[in-house]
Simulated assay, not measured.
Amino acid sequence: MNKFIYKIFFLVNWKKKIFPVIIQDFLKKNILMFAWLNKWNLLENFFFKKTCFWSRNKKKNWRKGLTSNNIQIIKDIFFDCDIDSYLFKINYNINNCHYNLISCFNYKL
């Protein structure tokens, strides 16, 4: 059995409702966005390799690019030491931010 699948099914704390995920450009390594996942999104992302998130505002699944065509293809999935936050390295076709920018992280304090 694939190690990642094993970790998802047996080591993930399923009592947590949602998990944070950072989206990173696979080639340039730029941070593109931050989102939330539920356990079903995590499994869908792993098997279908297209990003799907949990919308905390709308309380429903949000498939990136479904209406905007801003599709993100997952190349790698990483998780932290206690398997409660994730990093997706992706390829994308157009901008990722809902303000039509490449990244959501464009402002410095």
Rank of each mutant, 00 (worst) to 15 (best):
F46P: 05
G65H: 02
I94N: 10
N93P: 00
F47V: 14
N69R: 07
R63F: 02
T67N: 13
L87A: 03
L43S: 10
N91Y: 02
I22V: 14
V12L: 15
F78N: 06
N96P: 02
L66G: 00
F34A: 14
N100H: 10
F47C: 13
D80G: 08
W62P: 01
F10K: 12
K75T: 02
N45M: 09
F78A: 05
K3A: 09
N95W: 12
V21M: 08
I90G: 02
N100Y: 13
C52W: 00
I102P: 01
K15T: 14
E44D: 09
I18P: 03
I22G: 05
D25L: 01
N106K: 11
F34R: 12
F105L: 13
I102Y: 06
K64Q: 08
E44T: 06
L43C: 10
L32A: 05
I5G: 03
N70V: 02
N93W: 00
G65V: 07
N91K: 08
K89W: 01
Y99L: 13
Y92F: 15
L32C: 07
C97L: 02
F34M: 15
F88Y: 15
C104W: 10
R56S: 08
G65L: 05
Y107W: 07
S85A: 14
L42T: 10
K60Q: 12
F78R: 07
K39Q: 15
N30K: 11
F46K: 02
R63S: 03
I73R: 00
L32V: 05
D80W: 09
N13L: 01
W62Q: 01
Y92M: 05
I8G: 06
I18Q: 03
N93Q: 07
N2V: 03
W54E: 06
T67F: 14
H98T: 07
S55F: 04
L43I: 15
K59I: 06
N30P: 00
L11W: 04
I94K: 14
K15Y: 13
P20E: 15
T51C: 14
F34C: 12
W14Y: 14
L11H: 11
F26Q: 07
F9P: 02
I102E: 15
F78L: 11
K15S: 13
N61K: 09
F34I: 12
I8C: 12
N45A: 08
N61D: 09
I23W: 05
Q72A: 08
I94E: 09
K49E: 13
D76A: 00
T51F: 03
I74K: 04
D80A: 11
D76R: 04
S85V: 09
N61F: 09
N41E: 07
I74N: 06
Q72T: 08
I74C: 06
T51Q: 06
A35Q: 06
T51A: 13
I94A: 04
I74M: 04
N95P: 12
N95H: 11
W40R: 13
W14K: 12
R56N: 09
N2H: 14
I90W: 05
